[in-house]
Amino acid sequence: MSEAPAETTPAATASPETALLETALLEIRGLQVAFGGFRAIDGVDLTVGRGELRFLIGPNGAGKTTLIDVITGLTKPTAGTVRFEGLDLAGRREHEIVRLGVGRTFQTSVVFEELTVLENLDLAASFRRPLWSLLRRGRGVSEEVAAALETIGLTSLARSRAGVLSHGQRQWLEIGMLIVQRPRLLLLDEPVAGMASDERERTGELLTEIARDHTVIVVEHDMDFLRRYASQVTVLHEGKVLMEGSVDEVRADPHVQEIYLGRAREDAEDAVR
């Protein structure tokens, strides 16, 4: 699977990942996903090293969410391999992949509304315990959960039902539920979609904080958010990797400008701003 467009950008070949190849946390090779006749992903290669904060961007239908779905076992690929820490993820079920250390959020956050914020976090934190030990009454708050509550800024709402949280707070709770699971790879699917600007800011800070000691892949549409918080960016277009590079390289790239121009004027204006 050669990546024709990638060759046009020197950044992709000379990127620091080449050195990290041996220890790459996530390695995707020749990935294809077809829904009926439609190729949602058409030969994607992607390598993410430990400790990276990687942004995945691209216009609607570029295959960003599909890529996340494949990594997390929700969608089965038609061809190609996904390796996490050298392990082939093919044929593993969703919860097994989570247990290997891959966590994700969804575009529309799904927290458990009947449970309190604290209970949501506690449930997420307990997933490695043997099932029988869950029968004991969980009392008190573990340090880990307390720390996560602090990080996501929901300490004062710990005993409220998650059903009353705002959209932004739900996303943070989801991120908190990810953190307490101590994943080795976090996949965030459009974390700021539908957020007000102050919420975006807060989410950006949260992301920066998490990225300090986690490997994170963020799917994002929002160019402003990208400009402020991204460093390494992979651009997907029509199921292929269009280019990889730093934010500045990506924004300066005529191809990227072109596809954003062709797809949506507003995004394009954001992109070149």
Partner: peptide, 8 residues
Amino acid sequence: RVRFLGYN
């Protein structure tokens, strides 16, 4: 969602 918390 529970699946993505690592439970079966």
